[in-house]
Design a protein around this nucleic acid. Structure first.
Length: 565
RNA sequence: CGGGGAGUAGCGCAGCCUGGUAGCGCGCUACGUUUGGGACGUAGAGGUCCCGGGUUCGAAUCCCGGCUCCCCGACCA
């Protein structure tokens, strides 16, 4: 491709809309253009990389026994009502009507559709296992898209689904997918690590995320530097910090005017946060729930949702709290009746806690469990943080941020039951298929690859995902001998099957070098009057500072060698 | 959804407070001179100043309403 004809122009300054480096680079190179919040057009430069990433994914999926399919984006809403997810997805699901007034959705994921497709061909356990995948556009009306391609509302995703007759078969495929994912990230230049994750409300037992550690990541994960345990903070198990254990004293009200937060109590009563109990008020499927944790910990929504087994969980509004006659700031699970109380394990570690008194401006001293507080449910509902102790080995956790580049999880039979995808087992009984599902965001993978592979001058993507292999620049293209020599190398590289972008513009050397660095293809070839006098061309790797000078007739083969080693 | 910020030429921005013919840099076009790390000169092209109302002789500028985009938060008893 000749740059003079190429759709796309580099920018000399960063567009003001970008914050993160990958976003800035993708805008400056002209890879992408924003059309609306979280909605992007992809220029040829981006498509070339995205296609390479998609093909790497295809190769690994096929090698793992996957079969490619394509499921519709436009789907009847009825199907989503049948699975129950029309309700659970909420406003993230884009709903619309067709011309006949039929309710439709733009699919945010494809479990329903794939289950129907496989169901049609599934009769016997002999048909299993089955592994299918697709690379298809998803629509999710995210609350807040951000960071360029990191979180968008319309995006391509590889989603794979497996169907099994038993758990052993699911485990086997799951492990094969995990390995395939490691291969994919490694081939794309992404140092992803595997962490334990929450499998969501529909949940089977296992779920893992693949995270590329990065400051700009949206996910916080916890890892143990000693035993290697790593998990999403939403999921991580941990040992609750110790708290003073003393003789239990009788409960006693204390006047605490204007003291509403844990910090207020710490400042005024001379206690530590671990000597207090806090309550957070939620609405779970429309029912009010008190979630209680020790004051030094925070409630983890995801864990709470899992413990309750509810579909919709949100904080109660101020109005709802007031309507229930609860005194905000002094609310407490102690002595509260008629409201479901869920407590974290931490309330049993420590004694003589300070808790709200359920009347304005009062708290209670010396609350002890289980003497004074008998929750309906005790579970792990506290958020793990850096510094907390690893449940396995007791070492202090480290917390870090990262970009989630892949997610695998065991679905179980939620969809096969809802949509009646059953098979006949050897005993002649009908059984719902056991499912697994496996996702990778293609555009997010590119964003992560750019974020990881860059320097102050621009991108340095590996050849496997770089838009082109070679940036061929002719300096002083108005000189006939330069144009002729550069044309000639261009043709040779094309003949050799090398992906080359030929900078045949008449711009100055500085412009071309800067664009070459910005675009960051692995190899740069320069034809100039200076080297031409010696009958040579200059060949340089993006990641190295020194260039080699090679005879013109050997240039193409030299490049080919560089790219294959 | 709450809180901040911003919409003026392809990109980056100034102008607004204090209303009076819409500017600068980069990029773009033409010609000439340059020629290995974002060259120089000359001459040009390019704008519904986010949208709609209002005030005014006159609005990018003041007032009212709306839209869009970016960032932070979504953790609180």
């Amino acid at each position: 491709m000749r740059l003079s004809q190429f759709l796309g122009r580099t920018l000399r300054s960063n567009p003001s809309e970008a914050e993160t480096d990958n976003h800035k680079l993708m805008l400056r190179t002209g890879m992408i253009q924003q059309l609306a919040a979280g909605v992007y057009s992809y220029a040829p430069l981006a498509i070339r990389s995205l296609t390479k990433i998609a093909n790497i994914i295809r190769e690994e999926m096929n090698a793992a026994g996957g079969q490619e399919v394509k499921l519709p984006t436009l789907q009847p809403r009825e199907l989503w009502q049948q699975s129950g997810r029309d309700a659970t997805f909420g406003p993230d699901l884009i709903r619309l009507q067709d011309r006949r007034g039929r309710e439709m959705v733009l699919a945010p994921t494809h479990e329903e559709a794939v289950t129907l497709l496989v169901k049609q061909h599934l009769q016997s356990y002999r048909d299993l296992p089955m592994l299918v995948y697709q690379i298809q556009t998803k629509f999710r009306d995210e609350v807040r898209p951000r960071g360029g391609l990191v979180r968008v509302r319309e995006f391509d995703m590889k989603d794979g689904y497996s169907f099994h007759a038993d758990d052993e078969s699911l485990d086997e495929t799951y492990q094969r997918m995990v390995q395939a994912y490691h291969n994919i990230f490694q081939r794309c230049g992404i140092p992803a690590i595997q962490i334990e994750a929450d499998s969501g409300a529909i949940g089977g037992k296992d779920s893992h995320e693949f995270i590329m550690p990065s400051e700009i990541g949206e996910d916080t994960f916890i890892h143990c530097p000693k035993c290697g345990y790593a998990a999403n903070a939403e999921r991580a198990a941990f040992t609750r910090p110790a708290a003073p254990s003393e003789a239990e004293l009788p409960m006693e009200d204390v006047h605490t005017p204007g003291q509403k937060t844990i910090q207020d109590l710490v400042d005024n009563l001379g206690v530590t946060p671990a000597q207090t109990l806090k309550v957070v008020i939620y609405m779970a499927d429309g029912e009010m729930v008190f979630a209680t944790v020790r004051g030094d910990l925070d409630v983890n929504d995801i864990k709470l949702k899992r413990a309750l087994g509810c579909i919709d969980l949100r904080l109660a509004t101020d109005e709802e709290v007031a309507a229930a006659g609860i005194s905000a700031g002094s609310a407490s699970a102690v002595g509260m009746t008629g409201i479901k109380i869920v407590a974290d394990e931490s309330i049993n570690i420590g004694t003589n806690f300070v808790a709200g008194a359920n009347k304005a401006d009062y708290h209670i001293l010396n609350v002890n469990t289980p003497r004074d507080l008998k929750p309906d449910l005790i579970a792990d509902i506290a958020m793990a943080e850096g510094g907390h102790a690893c449940l396995n080995c007791g070492t202090a956790f480290e917390a870090a941020r990262g970009i989630e580049v892949g997610h695998v999880f065991k679905l179980g039979t939620f969809f096969s039951e809802a949509l009646e995808a059953t098979f006949q087992d050897p005993e002649g009984q009908q059984q719902p298929a056991i499912m697994g599902c496996y996702g990778i965001g293609v555009g997010r993978l590119l964003a992560a690859a750019v974020e990881q592979n860059r320097d102050e001058k621009g991108m340095c993507l590996p050849a496997s995902v770089a838009p082109f292999h070679v940036y061929l620049a002719g300096l002083n293209m108005d000189k006939e001998e330069v144009a002729a020599a550069a044309d000639s190398i261009y043709e040779e590289l094309l003949d050799a099957g090398v992906e080359v972008l030929y900078d045949d513009r008449t711009d100055s050397a500085g412009v071309k070098f800067n664009d070459a660095d910005l675009l960051g293809f692995p190899v740069r070839v320069v034809v100039s009057p200076r080297n031409l006098k010696e009958g040579k061309a200059e060949i340089k790797l993006r990641i190295e500072s020194e260039a080699n000078v090679v005879a013109l007739e050997n240039a193409a083969s030299y490049v080919t060698t560089l790219l294959t080693t």
